[in-house]
Structures are given as C-alpha cells and as structure tokens.
Design a protein around this nucleic acid. Structure first.
Lengths: 136, 136
DNA sequence: CTTGACCTTCCCATGATGGCAAGCTTCATC
DNA sequence: GATGAAGCTTGCCATCATGGGAAGGTCAAG
C-alpha cells in the first residue's frame, strides 16, 4: 500500500524468505537495497515485483545463475526474445534429462521390488542385485 | 588377483573415486580400512564388493544415509526382506514425487516457450509470465 | 520505560562431490 | 644407489540453495 516495506513484509508479499532476500543481495543477484537511517532494508513495490520474478523462476527450477541472466534480459528493453527462448529451451532439455535419469532409477527399482517377497524371510533379490552391481 | 588393493585400484574396480572412498570412511558409511605400515589403505576383494554395492545404490539414487541402512541389512543375515522392500518403496515414492515436480516445471516452461517468438524482437511472453508470477 | 516483534550481521550446517597443495611412499629405470 | 614419476596421505576450500541460531540494535504499543 504505502509502497515501502521492511524485509519481512517484502518476504510475505513475494514468497521469498528474508534470509534468501539477504542472500540474493549478498551474491549480487539483487542490487543492494536502500536502508533507513538505522540500517533496515527498504523495498519498493518494484523491488517486490522483482522478488516475485525470482520466486517464480526458482519454482520453475532455474538456478540463481540462470535467473541472473533472466533478470538482465527482463531489465533490458532492447533484448532479443530469442535469448530468453534459448535459455528456456536449454533448461527444458536439462529438466528432460533429469526426468529420464529419475525414471530410469525408478523403473529399475520397481523391477527389483517386484522380485522381493517383502516378508519376514531374509532372502532378498534386491540386496542380491545391489551387490551384483546391476543397476538396470 | 592378489586380493589386496590400494585405494586407486579399489577405485578402478568399484567405480567409486578414491576421494569418495575416503569420504565414506570418514563419515562412517564404511569401516576404517586396514593400513600398511606406511599408512596406505588396503582393500580386500570383499571390500571392493562392498564398494560396488555402494556404487550401485548411489546410481539408483539412494542417499548415503539410506545406503547405510541398506548395508546393515545386507550384512545382517537375519534381516526381514520386508525392511529392504519398505526402504525401496519409500525411495520409489520419492523418485515419483521428484519426477512429477520436474514434469510440472517442464510442462509450464514448454507452454511458455510456445508463446514466445524467439526472434530479434524484444516482446517476450516468457518474461511477462515470470513477472506475473504464474508458474503454471 | 518495558516488552515483544522485528531487524542487523556473522558463523555454521546440510549433501555429495571436486580441486588443490604439501609432503610421504613405492617402484621402475638409469 | 639415485632419481623421477606415479600414487598415496591429510587438510582445507568450493560448489548450490537453503536453514538455524546467537548476539545485539530498533521500533511501536501498552
């Protein structure tokens, strides 16, 4: 409302913890916030907007390094949308790679689990397979 | 062959880096290795077998903490296979959760990317959406 | 003027891994 | 036997994103 917020309010409005806001500032992802005379950080509506941008990007799995690039593209009114698009495509590829890795693990484990009685008996094909070194 | 290996040989045979073998020992995942008079670690075929167990488990996405449990089940001849089975099921559930999270991110990003021209023009619905805070 | 909620900085921890440096050992080759 | 390379030792630091906590300053309401 007033357009000037303490870090706690900025945190509530953006969904980024105060801890992380300070951290982002410390590593240079965000510019240094203005301070009151007593040293409290002050955030404008625009600053909160930026924080929400960061939050959304994190929720989509971008690294802070990538978010730094996204932010500078966002701020640069003369950007080429191609650059943004390329960044996103690269991230999608990485996500797909991770998904496939995890699916491979899951499928292997499911196969293993199917062979195991899962009762009070000690015989366990899961352990046998782990010991054999067959991760497929 | 001889059945006694230096850490480098154990590393080659197991696929676990020497660095990690030392680390696993330091955190108590593996027992302290025997040493030669000059302090070199010595590994038996059995030790290498254990290392391969750890490697396979890591490749399947188990945390070191979970691997510790798996190892103690492996060593305990009176285990109930149920305990192993439960551990694996839990891990499969976690993998499924991660997969769904990543798929959600990927699908959101794909949608966003489709709306973006990806050329030299600055207009970019991707950035707009990131700024709006719509991670869906 | 006290109290409680908020803010500040600083240090440490996570989990799994890698890198590097200084120094010692082992072994093959000259 | 000396030398050099390869391999071993420990120890410290870095990554990535985040959280926890302590010690101390500030602000507003009662």
């Amino acid at each position: 409302m007033r357009g000037v917020y303490n870090i706690g309010q900025a945190s509530h409005l953006s969904g980024v913890t105060a801890k992380m806001i300070r951290h982002y500032e410390a590593i240079g992802l965000l510019p240094e916030a203005k301070r009151t005379e007593s040293g409290y950080r002050q955030y404008s509506n625009e600053d909160v907007h930026t924080l929400r941008f960061v939050k959304t990007s994190r929720d989509l799995g971008f690294s802070l390094q990538e978010i730094q690039q996204l932010l500078s593209l966002w701020f640069n009114k003369r950007r080429a949308s191609r650059d943004v698009h390329r960044l996103v495509e690269k991230h999608v590829d990485e996500l797909n790679q991770k998904i496939m890795d995890l699916e491979r693990m899951r499928d292997s484990l499911k196969k293993l689990a199917q062979c195991c009685h899962g009762d009070e008996r000690p015989e366990c094909p899961i352990l046998d397979q782990l010991a054999e070194g067959e991760s497929t």
